[in-house]
Write a protein that binds this DNA or RNA. Structure first.
Length: 610
RNA sequence: GGGGGCGUAGCUCAGUUGGUUAGAGUGACGGCCUGUCACGCCGUAGGUCGCGGGUUCGAGCCCCGUCGCUCCCGCCA
């Protein structure tokens, strides 16, 4: 303790002083603290500096007859300074109750400028909103601001909590390669050219999928990793372009229920820890089969805070006494609008316009009114629906006088379901029915193994090609490519976790049987030799004793986004790219020089100008 | 790849039907001010109205193209 520290002093207990540490108990001490000048208030004779660091804000003050006055007079916002001075108590009327350090201030005895700041493109002080490109280019300034700084710390704390909870559940963290092989199916890969093998490429992992399965085959159990995942796909508000993080996990000798039982307490626990007063679904989370989700919610990621439930009413419009031609021979889904009856005509017109903009033919509706104790329908299509049919509709959809009922109709089931789902969300928002202050979890289970690709007229994997089909092994191996209906009806041990309308996690019980795997890929159009070649390592492993295994991979970024109350991943990512996948701070991507290209045996062919 | 929104001072924004010299707040700079904590008061500087083209006597405003950011569709096993 003999030599003074150049930036930060310590108290008698050896605890470091900072811009957030000083309290009334420190009055009388001489301290050294460093930080950014958050704000400067010049009273001519008297200068106040609010000094800010990671830990907080402390007011410093100096009077004109002090030796350090001239130096203090020079400093501006965001300069970095070190001050040494005496901690004094503020007079009662000058205490700032909004600051934890507000009972004291530091009298500047000496001040050293460590770093100056040019005029700021983005003020750190204040909480105004600024353009995204400026925020990204000057991310280091944005990160100094309270909101982002808080979000990033929240993220770090959440990740720490997840690690602790996983380890407490008996999981072990393993690292997996970043430079690996490209895999077919799925998203577009990022490729890394090989210097030593001309014309050959590594790929960045879209997820450590095959590695975690190999870890299970290698005899380890209960793997997890906060894993970076790379996918060359375009961004969305809830999907970063290029890269993101997953809580990747895998377990051996487990059923689907075992995976659920392992994951639920971790997610529920971490949400409860950071929910900040919001309620969280208690495990076990309810399980909704995919088909039921598509019917009742019109999506495989339902927001259960929205009380609206969709009902299939195709049969009502198929009845002989219902003569509404536009709905005949179509899938018709009814979406209740509780309490929407009194809304003005413009409300219904706007919804109809919106539905058309989503590609629907429109959004039909009837408004339900009480006419002398009798429930009647009003609106453009009400006249086509006789009383008996109307009674059936209202009973099945659980609506009454004062409510409205909307209809999504399409020749194709999935399109009718999708529009109904969008309408459900929109109605929930417009009618303010979405419950606030809660995180509602559910599992979506029994995803279809395959789906029909209309464009290419072929069968595709609908989700994860490594999932185990829910089907008798012998019958599966005997399937013919022409058993289209059977194949498209197959379900997989494939499941998602959904929270408040966001897909948080996707997982499966894996297919660890090489014969079933070859068959599964064959059905999706991959020749056996092709599958052997693409998954050589994994198939080989499966032929040397593979345990049944399964897992899932919750998205870290989305978990943090939900807990931070943000609606965009960039608000919880330290150094995000733009939606068009550019890093404006580090200037990536950028051209490679001739030497680099030569070493990699690459030549650039620019796209032709339009 | 496609559709919508936005783009005016360092920053946040206003800008009428197309009409003289494009404004305000904030920040910067200078002056005044001893208890502020969004300090206050006075003054100064700061603009290729994203860029290019067109219509017009005249364009920040209208038209076409283009660039950037963003939201969405496609895509995301």
């Amino acid at each position: 303790m003999s030599e003074a520290h150049p930036y930060r002093s310590r108290n008698a207990k050896g605890v470091m002083d900072s811009c957030g540490s000083l309290r009334a108990a420190d009055v009388g001490r001489t301290v050294t603290i460093s930080g950014w000048v958050n704000r400067r208030r010049d009273h001519g004779g008297l200068i106040f500096l609010d000094l800010r660091d990671h830990y907080g804000i402390t007011q410093a003050v100096i009077e004109p007859d002090e030796p350090a006055f001239a130096e203090t007079d020079k400093v501006r916002s965001e300069w970095v300074v070190t001050i040494t001075g005496k901690v004094v108590a503020r007079t009662p009327e000058t205490v700032n109750k909004d600051l934890p350090t507000g009972e004291v201030e530091v009298r500047i005895g000496s001040l050293k400028v460590q770093s100056q700041a040019q005029e700021l493109p983005l003020p750190v002080f204040g909480d105004l909103d600024y353009p995204e490109d400026v925020r990204l280019k000057y991310r280091f300034l944005d990160l100094r601001r309270e909101r982002l700084h808080r979000n990033i710390m929240l993220r770090a704390n959440i990740v720490t909590s997840i690690r602790r909870r996983m380890i407490e559940q008996g999981f072990t963290e393993f690292q997996t390669p970043i430079l690996t092989a490209s895999s077919p199916e799925g998203a577009r890969d990022f490729l890394v050219p090989s210097r030593r093998y001309p014309g050959q490429f590594y790929a960045l992992p879209q997820a450590p999928q095959q590695f975690k399965q190999l870890i299970m085959v290698s005899g380890f159990d209960r793997y997890f990793q906060i894993a970076p995942c790379f996918r060359d796909e375009d961004g969305r508000a809830d999907r970063s372009p290029g890269e993101f993080y997953q809580l990747d996990l895998e377990m051996s000798y487990v059923t689907q229920d075992d995976v659920f039982a392992a994951v639920e307490p971790v997610l529920a626990g971490v949400f409860e820890e950071f929910a900040n007063g919001k309620t969280v679904t208690k495990p076990p989370f309810i399980r909704i089969p995919f088909a039921e989700a598509m019917l009742k919610y019109g999506t495989d990621k339902p927001d259960l805070r929205n009380p609206i439930l969709i009902t299939d009413v195709s049969d009502v419009f198929a009845r002989g006494d219902v003569e509404f031609k536009a709905f005949k021979n179509k899938t018709v889904r009814a979406i209740p609008g509780p309490g929407a009856g009194p809304q003005p005509r413009s409300f219904f017109d706007k919804l109809n316009d919106w539905a058309r903009s989503e590609g629907a033919a429109g959004l039909g509706y009837i408004i339900l009114e009480d006419e002398g104790g009798k429930l009647t329908g009003k609106g453009p299509i009400a006249k086509f629906i006789p009383a008996e049919a109307l009674a059936d509709l209202t009973k099945r959809c659980g609506v009454g006088a004062g409510d409205a009922l909307f209809f999504s109709a399409d020749a194709k089931d999935d399109r009718a379901a999708k529009i109904a789902g969008l309408a459900r969300t929109r109605l929930g928002q417009e009618l303010k029915l979405i419950e606030d202050g809660t995180f509602k979890f559910c599992w979506i289970v029994d995803f279809p193994m395959y789906e029909w690709n209309e464009e290419e007229k072929k069968i595709d994997f609908s989700h994860n090609p490594f999932s185990m089909p829910q089907y008798d092994r012998g019958k599966f191996l005997a399937l013919d490519k022409d058993d289209k209906d059977t194949i498209l009806g197959l379900k997989a041990y494939q499941y998602d976790i959904v929270c408040n309308g966001y897909e948080l996690s996707s997982g499966a019980i894996r297919n660890h049987d090489p014969d079933v795997m070859l068959k599964a890929f064959e059905i999706a159009g991959y020749a056996r030799e092709e599958t052997e070649e693409k998954f050589k390592g994994m198939l080989n492993a499966f032929r040397h004793g593979a345990p049944p295994h399964g897992g899932t991979a919750p998205g870290i970024d989305r978990i943090v986004m939900l807990l931070a109350g943000e609606e965009n991943l960039r608000e919880v990512t330290m150094f995000p790219m733009t939606q068009s996948a550019q890093d404006l701070l580090m200037n990536a991507p950028s051209p490679a020089n001739a030497k680099q290209l030569k070493e990699l045996h690459l030549r650039v062919v620019m796209p032709e100008a339009k």
